[in-house]
Design a binder for these strands. Structure first.
Lengths: 348, 348
DNA sequence: GAAAGTCACGAAAACGTTTTCGTGTTAAAA
DNA sequence: TTTTAACACGAAAACGTTTTCGTGACTTTC
């Protein structure tokens, strides 16, 4: 149970000053070769490593970035973390995670905890509750204290910061176009309430693709799910809504869903009702996760490139951290990650 | 861009000493009510929050726990994190994550980075490479430096620390028993190489369940997958192996797989070959993740209670951190989380 | 009216670094 | 021999806290 060795202990042991030890280890020209050798050998022997906390205090930077997400048990978000971690590590940073659990207050508390010196900047995606309340004061306060924020996926124009988003609008459009090109005439949309920015954009993409082809959108083909509750809780309600969708629209031949779960559920129910996928009904989802790939039939999806989003977000943040901030010409950028349509078995 | 306010600045502004400010904020009896009021009001106005790094340095504890896992884009591990985060936050700790990516050297490097003061203790699951190399020096060194470790899931008896494991042996046994009870006569096992401790235990459970019922295990029914590569890379090879398994054992009527992916693949291939699940072939997997739940037919699995594992691991760690360590009677415990069989549509 | 006690506050050390500046010793230059 | 320069090292401050100890000014007690 011997504590980690410190400069002070090395100094005492070798009968030199702390400064000398520090300089010797950093190969300063001020120190004689003899002393350097001696100190470095001793340090190596005792496996000396500088204390990160002391360094952080001294340098006023922690080389750690904080990431706040609504939920970690979620393919998209964990893949983003994976991307952030990748470039963070490559550039000498650690990653500390906070989960908001889709709750506004947890988001605020978590950010406050981390903002008090623990990290240098944030990569985050807002909770649904925050989006609903439209209360962004904690973001702005954090930023005025000189701590940069990069938002991804769920963003909002009221907050002025770097952003990484997916091209939700065009992704959805591409998907619906595909369905139309494949011969679908009656295409349903399963989406979220509009306060979720990404849901709204995907809905717009759906509408525009229809319009483009002269198809008039019908209200009864659009199902908006209230996601205040989490998936698990209202799975059955969800199922029956989708079932109703199919039953009241017997000639439904295409479904575009704004996430994997909805799409899979649609496939399941379609088949239960005797429709074949993809011959009777074609289905496309959003978010290219494990579910899409391993489903039977596997699901055609719009790929969000989550990992790439994480990497880009981390790069934006670290770039900002390492730029000598001539705070005057602060300029924020929004990076758009283009989506790809990954075609699998659920479409023809 | 105004920096966060410090005690020193408050002191200067109010023309008192730093000590007075500190005491006033902590409501010390040494300070007059007048001064307290004044200081507290000022601190509130400027939203003073003590700097975590300074506190960490002073207290020699960071109130942060490090978690090292092989892979985050994985339902099981992200759920464990979720559990760790839950109790960590509840008890006033932050969580910092490191990914080993199943690599020994990344595991070592990541642990060294965090061990230099950034965290108070580890929750971790070893990489496959570490298990293969059987090199555990980094764990032991970390612990002799007074930094506790709690291992979960992938553990090894050569390392003396607290552990949280799943009852792999009995979980597997229960599953195979279930298949036998359901009338299966010829049950295949799809597992990993033996160096993965959990794979080995689950294999033993399979064998014992068979033996219990007087069934003699046949080598050609056991498929051991070399997982050195990751899933994605050798998916096709895997598929053809499983296909061969079915073809060379035409009367196969049950499959037990040590994870979800293998189980799903088995179902897919079985159906492709014209077998009905569950009427011709029944399938059970391990790891109760999203895939099992959303598959069609949904998969019967052995649930590992990942979140509960994370919670328990965090509790063990924090308990140890907060106990005044009478280092003499250091005692390590191994908590076994019991598994449940979650019955779904892939069994009768 | 002196001794003792209370009150309210400040000085300083400590946590582990890095870095600036000062200083004593020796060697080179004048 | 004296001045200067180079060399090798140490003292101290700083990062932002908390906490121990000391101290001056009053107030109480006999």
């Amino acid at each position: 149970m011997k504590r980690k060795i410190t400069l002070k202990q090395i100094a005492r042991e070798l009968d030199v000053s702390i400064s000398t030890v520090s300089k010797a280890l950093r190969n300063s020209a001020e120190i004689s070769d003899d002393t350097k050798q001696k100190v470095q050998a001793f340090a190596k022997l005792y496996n000396y490593k500088p204390n990160n906390i002391a360094l952080s205090l001294k340098n006023r930077r922690t080389n750690t970035i904080g990431i706040i997400i609504p939920e970690i048990v979620h393919h998209f978000f964990s893949k983003v973390i994976s991307g952030v971690e990748l470039v963070a590590n490559k550039r000498g940073y650690n990653v500390i995670v906070g989960l908001s659990n889709e709750s506004f207050s947890k988001e605020v508390i978590n950010m406050e905890m981390l903002a008090n010196g623990s990290i240098d900047g944030f990569v985050l995606s807002m909770s649904k509750e925050t989006l609903k309340l439209q209360d962004y004061h904690h973001f702005n306060e954090t930023m005025t204290q000189g701590m940069p924020i990069v938002m991804f996926d769920r963003v909002v124009s009221d907050v002025n910061c770097d952003k990484v988003i997916v091209d939700d609008f065009n992704g959805a459009k591409k998907a619906v176009r595909k369905l139309i090109d494949n011969g679908c005439q009656s295409i349903a949309l399963i989406t979220t309430e509009d306060y979720v920015s990404v849901g709204k954009l995907r809905t717009q993409g759906y509408l525009e693709a229809l319009e483009e082809h002269g198809i008039i959108p019908k209200a009864e083909l659009i199902l908006k799910i209230d996601e205040s509750l989490d998936y698990e809780a209202h799975m059955e309600a969800l199922e029956s809504e989708i079932e109703h969708l199919f039953k009241s629209n017997p000639n439904l031949d295409g479904v575009f869903a704004v996430n994997e779960i909805y799409a899979l559920l649609a496939m399941k129910i379609a088949r239960r009702l005797g429709h074949d996928v993809p011959n009777d009904v074609q289905v496309i989802g959003f978010t290219d996760g494990v579910l899409s790939k391993h489903a039977t039939p596997s699901l055609t999806t719009v790929s969000q490139h989550a990992q790439q989003m994480g990497e880009k977000a981390a790069e934006l943040l670290i770039d900002k951290l390492e730029k000598e901030f001539n705070s005057a010409d602060e300029v924020f950028q929004t990076v758009v990650i283009t989506t790809d349509l990954v075609e699998r078995e659920s479409t023809k």
